[in-house]
């Protein structure tokens, strides 16, 4: 039981593009750091030992550096933990969620940072009435660029990772 506890403590990490479902990802990933090293933006870093069995697996901390979807990492994954045959628009790392309580346009302050920087431009984030940002989960790739650029601290738009232990 000790192991189960040790192994199950685990945040919902944002994985690099093309990641297989989380449970399988943990098993497949051999922690070789290649995805981290090929990334020209250095957005990937390994999870620390406190994250149990996820230790050493690649994680994107979007608020620091988001994924710019250059798609250089999936081909270097040797074990198929990242699917190689994935297109930019098909990536589903997670879904961005807007916190209306802090998001500036909902407070009467004009801001379009997330909308303007979204790589799935005008599709994943649109502006309701040209003012209020709206995320379209079916288009959102979860790259975290919106979370990175949000001028509010903490970010009013956060990518919720699609990596979940329970779904396979």
């Amino acid at each position: 039981m000790f192991f189960e506890k040790l192994f199950s403590y685990h945040e919902k990490f944002l994985r690099p593009p093309g990641a297989v479902p989380e449970k399988e990802f943990i098993d497949r990933c051999i922690r070789c750091r290649k995805c981290q090293q090929i990334c020209p933006y250095q957005c990937i870093s390994p999870a620390g030992a406190l994250h149990g069995d996820a230790m050493g697996t690649p994680v994107i901390q979007a608020r620091e550096i988001p994924c710019y979807l250059c798609m250089k990492c999936p081909p270097v994954c040797p074990t198929g933990a990242l699917k190689t045959d994935i297109q930019k628009a098909d990536v589903r790392m997670g879904v961005a969620r807007i916190d209306r309580a802090t998001c500036l346009p909902f407070q009467g302050i004009i801001c379009r940072a997330c909308y303007e920087n979204c790589p799935i431009y005008r599709e994943a984030i649109t502006l309701d009435q040209e003012i209020y940002p709206v995320v379209h989960p079916e288009k959102c790739v979860g790259c975290g660029i919106c979370e990175h650029v949000c001028p509010i601290e903490p970010s009013a738009i956060v990518v919720e990772s699609s990596a979940s232990r329970n779904e396979d």
């Binding site: 051999i30 290649k34 090293q37 090929i38 270097v76 074990t79």
Partner: peptide
Amino acid sequence: VKGFTGVIGTFYSME
């Protein structure tokens, strides 16, 4: 880190 990615990886896996 400096941008040369001709050789990457660790002894787990290299390229």
